[in-house]
Design a protein around this nucleic acid. Structure first.
Lengths: 348, 348
DNA sequence: ATTGGCACTCTCGTACCGAGAGTGCCAACC
DNA sequence: GGTTGGCACTCTCGGTACGAGAGTGCCAAT
């Protein structure tokens, strides 16, 4: 019962070879096959011995007694680990990606295209989202009177997100009132996060209750109408490439479940948020998504946070079958994540 | 070779019964089955005779010699035709639909939920879109300086659509310039369609070229930056319920094709636009989508335009298998289309 | 430690068979 | 003449059997 990973040089080589062969062929790999491709000229029997060891330590599984071996989740984790460092993206892919983002102006657009490109490049589903969370810093807010008691609020955040929302108010504020309120908010709170603003507005309203002036009354009204609410429910999640699932997943019921899950943007957002955080530097590869989502058995998440400056404003990821081109996908995700920061910085 | 539809009373009854039985069972319907369910007490043999006639006139098809009959596209068209009038939506569904639209404020939100509800209610894919076309009437435009040469433009249309866009300008306009330009556009063009405004702006710029003032220069700059462009490319198309396809379409390759098509929002938009227009009063049912989209063989579109007042601002539809509950889906689509007008009118 | 040899296991494609479901048509019937 | 029972014929589908092929596990020899 060896529990500290493949020790020997040969053991590691063979494990890597098995994973790679299985990824490209999709069939359980046999000792013969490996022996053929191996320049060391080892015999199948020798390889069988090593394979038996690897199976004992949980790296390989056997569909049935007389079939070849299939890598386990543990094997994929080892493989990805071992891969780290030799990342390089082909010229062609760099061009494809660069081209896809030509003319992109804001984070929304970027994310939309990201999901598209990722679905093209990988054999999985491209997912990208912006966090419309309360952590976003305010850049600008505008109000515009649409009709009696209806006001359009537009919030622009520092990270380039634009969020418009139609408010229904109890009072009928004039455009002049709205302009004053907007100026007040912009001058006092530019750069603050939305939740900080909310808290502060509440505080000021309370302390100013004695000398309750017209301005604060407008602000209160707008606040209560939800002008500054950071509605989690309306996150923008872009998903593309679900047709890729059809080939990698034969089971009808599973496929159906997965499609359903991918349509529940809310859960998808939680999934990404669970695995990706602002601090992490590199791309994260999660093998064994079934811990969070049972229907995602045999699927993998390869994702990275999208940052502008130091701030995390979204996530991008590929959700694909365990049998995928890790090296390629990882480098692509990493490349796009870096591109995001670059493009969005120069856009500001 | 009879070519004027099912003539006799009995012929019609049997055809209807066949379509209904096939829709609910999914299996070729046999003369026996029909004889059992028929209170007229006809024998299977009699029914076989009628079925043979219906097959001759192209209403029925036979998978193989000794199988029951399957309705042809022609039969479905007859069936839907014949259905017209007896539309009624159950209380439960009315409640479900009503509930789904609680709190909806603008057309975008409405469409998003429409695609969701339709996918739940029908056995197909719910599709809904707003036309971001040039025919929309301007309600309001705002500009806001984001940074040097970067301006945020927000266009609100009369039908409740809000469209924001980040412009890159050659000149650096001050916020005061922008406010003046916005006031100019709002005062002069409220209620005009976007393309009319574009044309008129060009005309005025030319005629005013002699006495070229500061205001017109700002307006020209904004115009050239695309402030008023009605970008077709960025229509908002909402698609939901693709998981429903898995059950109705077994063929892997077809399924894949369909999923891919449903992700191409642009083509989907064209499809809807091809079949739905502002003038049509009722729900339109298109049987035989393969004429437009080959991969949509055996699929059906049930759709209606979404109108506010007289103006068409979007479309909603169900794309589902020929084997679906037509009555139910048609009434649901019709109901939601009416609801759209009602909700969006009172929102304005 | 490595290897050849060999018995054993499991899958997969093919062929075959019989039951079941349905039709088509004919002759009889009302 | 429309309707019906009867019957031969066709086609599908599930189950079984079987042989080829691929692979392993293990042992004895190197």
């Amino acid at each position: 019962m060896v529990e500290r990973g493949p020790t020997g040089q040969r053991e590691r080589e063979i494990l890597t070879a098995i994973v790679e062969t299985y990824i490209s062929s999709g069939e359980p790999v046999a000792s013969r096959t490996l022996a053929r491709g191996n320049k060391d000229g080892l015999s199948p029997a020798t390889i069988r011995n090593v394979m038996a060891d690897l199976a004992d330590s949980g790296y390989l599984e056997q569909p049935h007694t007389s079939a070849g071996r299939v890598p386990s989740a543990k094997a994929y984790r080892y493989y990805v680990e071992q891969l780290t460092g030799r990342a390089h993206l082909s010229e062609a892919d760099q061009d494809l990606i660069q081209g896809s983002f030509r003319g992109v102006r804001d984070a929304q657009e970027f994310m939309e295209r990201t999901s598209h490109v990722l679905s093209l490049i990988s054999s999985g589903v491209g997912v990208a989202m912006t966090v419309a969370g309360p952590r976003n810093a305010l850049e600008h807010v505008y109000f515009s009177r649409v009709s009696a008691n209806k006001v359009l609020a537009v919030v622009v955040t520092r990270s380039g997100l634009v969020r418009d929302r139609l408010l229904r108010l109890d009072q009928d504020l004039s455009q002049a009132d709205l302009d004053t309120a907007a100026r007040y908010l912009n001058e006092n709170f530019r750069g603050w996060t939305l939740d900080a603003i909310q808290a502060e507005v509440v505080r000021r309203m309370e302390s100013a209750r004695s000398e309750y002036d017209h301005l604060m009354q407008s602000v209160e009204e707008l606040y209560r109408g939800g002008a500054l609410a950071a509605d989690e429910s309306h996150q923008n999640v872009y998903v593309e490439g679900v047709s890729n699932l059809v080939v990698s997943e034969a089971d009808q019921e599973r496929l159906r479940e997965m499609l359903r899950t991918l349509e529940e943007k809310q859960r998808l957002a939680e999934l990404l948020q669970a695995y990706l955080d602002a601090k992490q530097e590199a791309v994260r590869v999660v093998i064994g998504l079934e811990d969070t989502l049972p229907q995602m058995r045999n699927f993998v998440l390869i994702g990275a946070p999208a940052r502008v400056g130091g701030e995390m404003v979204g996530s991008l990821a590929v959700i694909g079958p365990t049998r995928m081109d890790y090296e390629h996908t990882i480098t692509a995700v990493s490349y796009i994540a870096k591109l995001f920061d670059k493009i969005l910085n120069e856009t500001q």
